Amino acid sequence: MSRTEKEWRAILSPEQFRVLREKGTERAGTGKFNKHSAPGVYTCAGCDAPLYKSATKFDSGCGWPAFFDAIPGAIDRHDDFSFGMRRTEITCHNCGGHLGHVFYGEGFPTPTDERHCVNSVSLAFHDKKQ
């Protein structure tokens, strides 16, 4: 999905634009989906593509929504060398919107031992059967 900066600014809130299009990060503990636990599907706030099923969400205590796996094909992973370290950035496969980062090997009791640390502002939620 290709949109101009002007088109993105017209459909996203200023905070959504800052995070999704400029790779920003919301403050820890401030996002509406951090402690959210209803059954359904989390989609991209920019394009509404399905990203995560609620069954993969867990409380990591990090201050952002955490998931141990994405819907197959929903996200892309990119090396991110900002802040003087190597991290793995995750973006929406459909529109390229910045979601957050994946962290590996932290020892959480999840099937993948991955923590997809996602900005709430990058997400929308839909009550759907999984």
Rank of each mutant, 00 (worst) to 15 (best):
C117F: 08
A70W: 11
L99V: 01
E89C: 07
A66M: 12
C92L: 02
H101G: 09
S60P: 01
E106M: 07
P65I: 06
A66N: 11
A70G: 04
M85P: 00
F103N: 00
P72K: 15
S60I: 02
T112E: 07
T91E: 02
P111Y: 15
P65W: 11
S60L: 08
G84Y: 12
S60G: 03
G63C: 07
S60W: 04
R77E: 14
H116N: 11
T112I: 02
P72R: 11
E89N: 02
P72A: 05
D69V: 13
G73P: 06
T112M: 01
S82I: 10
H116W: 15
G61N: 12
G96F: 02
H98Y: 08
Y104S: 06
T112H: 03
C117I: 05
F103M: 15
R115I: 02
H78M: 03
D79F: 03
G73R: 11
V118R: 05
D79E: 15
H116S: 07
W64C: 00
F108E: 11
F103H: 04
G63Q: 05
H101I: 13
F83M: 14
C62E: 11
E89T: 00
M85S: 11
F67V: 08
P111C: 00
V118H: 00
T88H: 09
M85R: 02
I90F: 00
G63I: 08
L99M: 14
Y104P: 00
F67R: 03
F67G: 04
T88I: 14
P65A: 07
H98K: 08
G107M: 01
F103V: 11
C62A: 13
D69Y: 13
D79N: 05
D69C: 12
Y104G: 14
R86E: 13
G105F: 09
P111V: 08
D79H: 02
C95H: 10
F83T: 15
G107N: 13
V118Q: 02
C92T: 03
M85Y: 14
F81A: 10
E106I: 14
H116I: 13
D76G: 10
G100E: 08
H93Y: 01
N94R: 03
D80P: 09
G84C: 10
H116A: 03
V118L: 06
E89D: 06
F108R: 10
M85L: 11
G84N: 12
F68C: 10
E89P: 05
Y104L: 13
G84D: 10
H98A: 05
W64Q: 04
R115F: 01
L99P: 06
G96C: 10
H101D: 02
H116M: 08
E114L: 04
F83E: 14
S60V: 05
A74W: 13
D76C: 01
G96L: 07
C117M: 05
P109I: 13
I75R: 01
P65C: 11
I75C: 01
G105L: 11
C62I: 08
R115K: 08
T91D: 01
N94D: 02
E89S: 08
G84K: 04
F108G: 01
G100R: 01
F81C: 01
T112F: 05
C117K: 06
P111A: 08
P65S: 14
E89W: 01
G107T: 12
F81W: 04
S60T: 09
A66T: 15
G97F: 07
